[in-house]
C-alpha cells in the first residue's frame, strides 16, 4: 500500500519540472525594460483602482459621494456602513447560503470531474472519443439559455427560494471534466495504473489510491475556480432566489443597488463585503489559481 501512496507524489513533480525550465526559457530571451514595468504598473493600478475605490466610497457617506471632486481617500464611516449594509441586505444569511452553495457545488464538481476526467484520460472504452466531443461541445453552450425550463422545474418542485434550486444546475461543469482530463493525461503515468492493476486493484481502488493523490494539485485549483464561479453566479440565483427569502451574496448585493437603499455608500459597503472573501482567497492562493488557469489554457 505504501508504494501506491508514495508513487503519485513522485508523479506530480514532472509536470512542475517541465513547466519551470519552459517558463524560464520563454521569458529568458528578453528582459523587461522600464517601459514594460511602466505598462504593467499602470495596468495593475487599473485592475485594482475600482476595488480600492469601492472601499473609499464605502468609508464615506451619501452626501460626500454627491459632491465634486469625488473622494480620493478613506473617510471615517467604513465600519458604520459595513454594519448597516450587513443588516439591511441580509448579508449574514447570504454569506452562509453562498458558502454552502459554492462549497457543495465545488466539492461535487471536483469529485465528479476527477473520476470522469480520469476515465477520459486513461481508460479505454467504446464511445470515448464521441463522448469527449460532447463534453467539449457542452462547454460552448451557455447555461443561460436553459433558464426557462429550469425555472419551470423549480416552480413545479416548489423550490423557489430554496438553495437546492441553485445547487443542482450548477453541478454541470464540462470545463471541470476537460480540465481534469488535461491534467491527468500528463500527471498520471500509465505504469502506475498498470502496476496497481497487476496487484489486483479494482477500478475504484485505482481511483482512490492513485488518481486522487496524483490529481490533488489540480483538484485544489479546480475547486477554487468553481467556488469563485458559483460564488459570483448572478442570473440564475437572481431568478429563483429573492432578497428576503434565501439570497446568495450576489442577489443580496444586487438588491442593495436596485433602490432598496438609495444610499450609495451603503451600496459600496455591500459590494465590498460581497467581494472581500474572494479577494482574500486570491491573495492567499493567487499563485496556484494563476497556475491553474494557465495550465487549463494550454491545449484549450
Amino acid at each position: 500500500m505504501t508504494t501506491t501512496l508514495t508513487k503519485p507524489e513522485d508523479a506530480a513533480p514532472p509536470v512542475r519540472k517541465s513547466r519551470k525550465p519552459r517558463a524560464a526559457r520563454a521569458g529568458g530571451h528578453m528582459h523587461g525594460g522600464p517601459i514594460a514595468y511602466a505598462i504593467l504598473v499602470l495596468f495593475s493600478i487599473g485592475s485594482l483602482f475600482p476595488l480600492v475605490w469601492t472601499a473609499i466610497a464605502a468609508s464615506r457617506d451619501n452626501n460626500r459621494l454627491a459632491q465634486t471632486p469625488p473622494p480620493f481617500w478613506f473617510g471615517s464611516n467604513l465600519f458604520h456602513n459595513l454594519d448597516v449594509a450587513w443588516t439591511d441586505a441580509n448579508l449574514g444569511e447570504a454569506f452562509v447560503n453562498t458558502t454552502f452553495v459554492a462549497g457543495v457545488s465545488a466539492l461535487t464538481i471536483v469529485f465528479l470531474s476527477t473520476i470522469a476526467g480520469f476515465a477520459f484520460a486513461k481508460l479505454r472504452f467504446r464511445g470515448r472519443g464521441a463522448l469527449m466531443l460532447l463534453v467539449i461541445g457542452t462547454m460552448m453552450v451557455p447555461p443561460q439559455l436553459s433558464v426557462i425550463p429550469l425555472y419551470m422545474m423549480v416552480a413545479k418542485l416548489d423550490w423557489t427560494d430554496q438553495l437546492q434550486a441553485v445547487i443542482f444546475p450548477s453541478l454541470v461543469s464540462a470545463f471541470g471534466v476537460f480540465f481534469m482530463r488535461q491534467y491527468l493525461i500528463q500527471a498520471l503515468p500509465d505504469e502506475l495504473i498498470e502496476a496497481a492493476r497487476m496487484d489486483g486493484a479494482s477500478s475504484w481502488r485505482v481511483v482512490w489510491h492513485i488518481v486522487f493523490p496524483a490529481a490533488r494539485p489540480a483538484m485544489a485549483v479546480l475547486g477554487m475556480l468553481m467556488f469563485v464561479q458559483t460564488w459570483n453566479d448572478f442570473l440564475w440565483p437572481f431568478l429563483v432566489l429573492t432578497q428576503t427569502g434565501n439570497p446568495t451574496v450576489q442577489v443580496a448585493v444586487a438588491g442593495l443597488g436596485r433602490g432598496y437603499t438609495p444610499d450609495q455608500s451603503l451600496i459600496m459597503a455591500g459590494a465590498l463585503l460581497g467581494t472581500l472573501p474572494l479577494l482574500l482567497v486570491f491573495a492567499i492562493f493567487g499563485k496556484q489559481i494563476v497556475g491553474g488557469i494557465m495550465q487549463g489554457a494550454v491545449k484549450g
Binding site: 485592475s47 448572478f234 450576489q250 443597488g257 467581494t275 474572494l278 479577494l279 486570491f282 493567487g286
Partner: peptide, 10 residues
C-alpha cells in the same frame, strides 16, 4: 486576476 474575482454585481 483581481477583477476576475470580483462579481458582476459588485
Amino acid at each position: 486576476l483581481a477583477p476576475y474575482a470580483t462579481s458582476i454585481a459588485a
